[in-house]
Design a protein around this nucleic acid. Structure first.
Lengths: 154, 154
DNA sequence: ATCATTGCAAACTGTTTGCATCAAG
DNA sequence: CTTGATGCAAACAGTTTGCAATGAT
């Protein structure tokens, strides 16, 4: 058998993907953590778990999984891809010091926030855009970096 | 003389940078357009203007200019860096079809929009973050892509 | 004379692809 | 038996760096 976790097998086959060992390990890792891994970090995490994998296999499967909508893909502020298991629309709170991020919902009157042209001469074109939604990236400092900064300045 | 546009020279020297030809051309391009160029696109635009430049010089100066705060740098959804001349805090409206983006301000009660944990077990950690602000990426379809889509479906 | 800038070429990182091997349906 | 998955190695794209030549102060 290729995958010993039934709920993972089902999640894959429901999207038309075969439940291969590599896919089960990737999805298992993402479901058990709430991390937003880069491919390199994922490779290391899988190696630590005793589930090593070739980097080509990882990239190939990350592409398949995200195209199928089983996992989410996005690009971090440093330009490297990151993946998570949360496919519902959500936002991120990013640490401006270390780059770590957590999943958040946006609470409040977000729907009332609308775009407005910065340059007057662009206002005409802006009015003809069809606005469909927004992604919010909250920026802050995580607890660990707050402590680190306090220690350094003391 | 290295730079024949006084307002550009001043903008550079005010930030402690020498007004070299390469910097004047880069800043001139960004000020005259409201584009969000990748380095490659900028190289092409400069070449078209008859102001060619080595790719290394371009990267070196983009780094200096953005570190000095003369221009803004960010990473697009495709993972490649983009630069603009707007250094005041602002947001972007991105076309989900072609990727083109325009600068916008966020009008509305954005300050009342706050992060909320997606996973209950993360709520404790979230409370200890220091939230400093947010970046909004409005997503939509630009006029040109709307027209293109209408033509295709007709 | 000194120090910064330019630009070529080489190095490097993140990512994708060709291809041979292997396993599943 | 046919199709898809794996993984090595090579190719690639975007970016950075070492270094020699050039130009500014």
């Amino acid at each position: 058998m290729a995958c010993d976790r039934p709920e993972i097998t089902e999640r894959l086959t429901a999207h038309g993907l075969r439940a291969t060992p590599a896919r089960c390990r990737i999805l298992g890792l993402l479901l058990e953590t709430h991390e937003h891994y880069t491919p390199e970090e994922m490779l290391e995490a899988l190696r630590t778990r005793g589930e090593p994998m070739s980097i080509a296999t990882l990239y190939q499967n990350l592409a398949k999984l995200s195209e199928a909508g089983v996992i989410g893909r996005f690009v971090g502020p440093d330009g490297v891809s990151r993946y998570d298991a949360v496919t519902d629309p959500h936002h991120h709170l990013v640490c401006e010091v270390c780059g770590r991020m957590v999943d958040v919902r946006a609470a409040g009157p977000l729907a009332e926030v609308v775009p407005q042209a910065v340059f007057p001469e662009d206002a005409g074109e802006l009015a003809r855009w069809q606005v469909k939604g927004h992604k919010v990236e909250f920026v802050g400092v995580c607890p660990a970096c707050q402590a680190r900064l306090r220690a350094r300045s003391a």
